[in-house]
Design a protein around this nucleic acid. Structure first.
Lengths: 261, 261
DNA sequence: TAAATATTCAATTGATCAATTGAATATTTA
DNA sequence: TAAATATTCAATTGATCAATTGAATATTTA
């Protein structure tokens, strides 16, 4: 028997089903209703990530939990608009929130969500050639920035002839960072130039593929005579490759301090 | 300088940019255009998977390449409608096709696409409680079908007291299957009952989480006095867990024979 | 040339947004 | 109670679909 649940989700005409006599035809119909319902539910996640604005919000939330105001500022949207997009993400179960005093802190609902968004970005990067062009374009425009891959960074770090800097906001660094990285938020970079080695290569990283903070950092460093390149990957990519070692050996990801108010 | 490419993708007013004098403001604007363009491109994939119908098509293509007619039959859609959905998927670069005689064979454009769709399904399964309910519902409705996980199957197969059957169409079995499985397409099951052991547990698997073929198989087997359960996972899930061993040790995935015409 | 398959075209029906804003309301803290 | 933050409401503007069909057209084989 098709239960009420199906009729709710699919608005299916129960009377019609009841009058159906042929068992085989009935089973086929039930299978169809089931499939329609299942794919409709999965499509909820698809719909959530079909908006560029919401993708930008998710990308920011990959760095940790944030208030509505912070997200609005980062994405150049109004608070009202941001809040509404967040409600949509909430309905698709991709994000969660927590009230702390007068602030609402939003975060990704699950570690799986972060990995999923990351794999979406990597898939898009690989499949959509326009995206590759777009990225090449901006790196060329901006002073012919050189990029290195994660594997290359690891090789150079083992040799010890590289300085790694994290140019994201301090809170994001404190939430999680690549071991061995120094936190120099982009707006403090010019103040900290004296502490950086002029004879060694500097590798800057930021939020990842869609973020230009490290590009900006490399531009500033080069303008002051430093040798600097950009790391292509983000903390998240690093983490998804070095998951176990990271959490066990380094333990620099202190969840308790994850929200800086 | 913002290049023409941006103005094409974003319909951006170049004149306005040229007249912009402040360098910092200009950079901010360029960053914004870049981000908007990047997220718009990524959203193309989101849009492709925001339709339940297209998700169903992608799910079928996970089993290998198929003609438009086959896909239309499997999804209960008209050929015209199927073709149009396939054009959308083509534009989002998730599928590719090849002409062979009078047929067009569509397939997933990349192995990454299959893994991505699989992770979408797993994410939806975990996050969307309605989906869990829907599935419980149907298994309860259909004779209280029991399901086992991949890990459990492996344990039982090592003990040797289990018969594994693949109830998908023969072409899909030939394309790729779990080692040790016997191909018994659902429509041939009743003919093959005599060849199955009555005293041993039979595990049936099909296309995966959204497919009911194995559920049907278990129902038939039980009705004839067999002890039968359903495997929760699909070949794809098995493959994503046992990738290297599979392709090296077994080599039963013969790409040359992947298309049966 | 006839038959089979796939794509495209034109059209329908209906919904549902997409992104956004300003103002009102609710909530919490100091 | 005033101030700050977040959500909701009502409204705008504009697009773009979502899913679908039947018929026409294109393509290929036998």
């Amino acid at each position: 028997m098709v239960k009420l649940y199906f009729s709710i989700t699919m608005n299916y005409d129960l009377e019609y089903i009841k009058n159906e006599i042929n068992q085989e035809v009935f089973m086929e119909k039930e299978t169809r209703i089931f499939k329609d319902s299942v794919y409709a539910q999965i499509a909820r996640i698809g719909k959530a990530i079909s908006s560029p604005r919401r993708l930008e919000i998710l990308d920011i939330l990959m760095q940790g939990s944030k208030t509505v105001e912070t997200i609005a500022r980062e994405t150049d949207m109004s608070v009202a608009n941001t809040s509404q997009h967040l409600q949509t993400l909430l309905e698709s179960r991709l994000v969660e929130y927590e009230k702390r005093g007068v602030y609402s802190y939003y975060k990704l609902a699950d570690r799986m969500v972060g990995n999923f968004i990351l794999s979406l970005q990597l898939l898009a990067e690989k499949r959509i050639t326009e995206l590759q062009k777009l990225r090449e374009e901006i790196y060329t425009n901006r002073d012919n920035i050189e990029q290195i891959k994660m594997s290359e960074l690891i090789v150079r770090m083992k040799k010890g002839n590289v300085t790694l800097i994290d140019v994201r906001p301090k809170e994001e660094y404190e939430m999680m960072h690549i071991p061995g990285a120094n936190s120099i938020p982009i707006e403090d970079l010019e103040k900290h130039l004296a502490t950086l080695p002029i004879n060694q290569e500097i590798v800057a990283y930021c939020r990842g593929r869609c973020c230009l903070l490290s590009v900006e950092a490399v531009e500033i460093l080069r303008a002051h005579g430093f040798k600097a390149v950009r790391l292509e990957a983000s903390v998240q990519e690093w983490l998804s490759q070095n998951d176990d070692e990271y959490s066990n050996a380094h333990n620099c990801c202190n969840k308790k301090n994850s929200i800086i108010s």
